[in-house]
Design a protein around this nucleic acid. Structure first.
Lengths: 146, 146
DNA sequence: CCATATTGTATCGTACGCGATATATTGTTA
DNA sequence: TAACAATATATCGCGTACGATACAATATGG
């Protein structure tokens, strides 16, 4: 048995698992808000800056447009965002928050930070650990994105 | 704008992104081997211990059987594993490596560690950083799995 | 200015993840 | 042991991810 190929030695498997479990921790709240985790990511991008073309949203999330386009189509159908052709560049679709999409920020702020805090309260990591973790993940991300 | 809801402050988004990018780094090699990343995870479980029921594989990977069953069906169709009814408990499907599945371990060991090492060589993290990262991810995983 | 390359978005196909449900087998208990 | 609960797996539906491809609009070079 090759030690390098053992599951327990793999950072990637841990990232994969931690991501799924944290996403699952978000899910009950997001379901009440009527959205999914990737949709929540799109909303965070738009809460930071409204009226962005599909490409900018995809770049911000490091996703391809063939992932983001159908995601936005579903969100539009739910009345969370709207899309309209760009005026300067007619190829672009400019994505904007609807009133419903803006409302979701308040609801998210009212529920998500406290719930995630609760769910992670038993975790021994301190604030400084999370900060270092964030930096280390950033350096992995920076290394791997071309 | 609520600082707690900003994308840059979120550990979860970093985990999600780092996972996707590392998985993408694995993909070219795994594609040559004819498998996907989740299939590679299943193989690692079987390389550790052959002839396991679906449930044990799912538990090892912290996945649900409704994810693992179709995965195994695809792997069986490709001739990487085979499944047969359990003798003691006829409800179980015992999953075993085929010769092709066993061969893949050698091929994986020949290519994956060096390739991943190359791709992450520009990353400033040291071995001790990866070790601590692994421990911290484990404590997040341990906290969130019920 | 026109042919061509590039860009922005959309569509299609495949493989996950996972909630919900179904079914067969085994365990338990009255 | 017959009725019922629990377990192991499978199936279905939906929403991502992403490679491959298509198409319209814009940019560019001759």
């Amino acid at each position: 048995m090759h030690a390098e190929l053992q599951l327990d030695n793999q950072i990637c498997f841990r990232l994969y698992t931690a991501t799924r479990l944290i996403t699952q921790a978000y899910t009950p709240i997001l379901t009440k808000l009527g959205i999914t985790y990737p949709q929540y990511l799109v909303l965070m991008v738009l809460w930071e800056k409204d009226n962005q073309p599909v490409n900018d949203i995809a770049h911000r999330l490091l996703l391809e447009t063939n992932t983001v386009t159908p995601l936005l189509q579903r969100m539009e159908k739910q009345g969370i965002v709207c899309r309209k052709k760009g005026e300067k560049d007619k190829r672009q679709q400019i994505v904007s928050l609807t009133a419903k999409g803006k409302e979701l920020e308040k609801k998210a702020f009212a529920k998500i930070p406290s719930s995630m805090g609760d769910q992670l309260s038993a975790c021994p990591l301190k604030l400084e650990d999370y900060k270092r973790l964030a930096q280390e993940l950033d350096s992995i991300i920076e290394t791997l994105k071309k």
